[in-house]
């Protein structure tokens, strides 16, 4: 069983970020959320190893500088980082985005519109997933 859920949240929107933090608090889940404001920032954090393993990534798609799909591309071509578990959390219900994301081996695709304004559903899923999940160590 894993301890606290560690999340790298790649999200350019402050309110969405606050919203997710609130949802975790609401579920009384003690966790560590690290925020990156876009793909470039997220890569910096990952390469500096700022985030303690194990962790999962919650990724927005539309972001400045480096989009979610570009981030996925980079991660999957990086020998050091390509085993990271990534969930997409976006407003885009575009079929192309969904297909492209899964081709980059994401663990799941959540729609912001569909998950109410509080992301409680997403938090519940991630929490349940985290409790029984086995991730590579180190």
């Amino acid at each position: 069983m894993n301890h606290d859920l560690n999340v790298l949240l790649v999200e350019d929107d402050d309110i969405d970020f606050m919203s997710i933090v609130r949802s975790f608090k609401k579920r009384k889940i003690l966790n560590k959320i690290t925020r990156a404001i876009d793909g470039v920032h997220a890569l910096e954090l990952l390469r500096e190893e700022t985030i303690t393993k194990p962790f999962i990534v919650l990724l927005d798609l539309q972001m400045p500088r480096m989009s979610g799909l570009e981030f996925l591309d980079t991660i999957r071509n990086d020998d050091m980082l390509n085993d990271i578990v990534i969930f997409v959390l976006t407003t885009s219900d575009n079929e192309q985005d969904i297909v492209k994301s899964y081709k980059k081996h994401i663990a799941g695709y959540f729609l912001k519109d569909r998950v109410s304004d509080q992301f409680l559903d997403v938090v519940d899923v991630l929490d349940g997933y985290w409790r029984i999940l086995q991730l590579p160590k180190g």
Binding site: D13, I15, D16, M18, S19, R22, T91, K112, D117
Partner: peptide, 14 residues
């Protein structure tokens, strides 16, 4: 236009 509107809705509910 939906994105800022959703944000306003959230802030109000908070």
């Amino acid at each position: 236009l939906k994105a800022p509107l959703t944000a306003i809705a959230k802030l109000v509910s908070w």
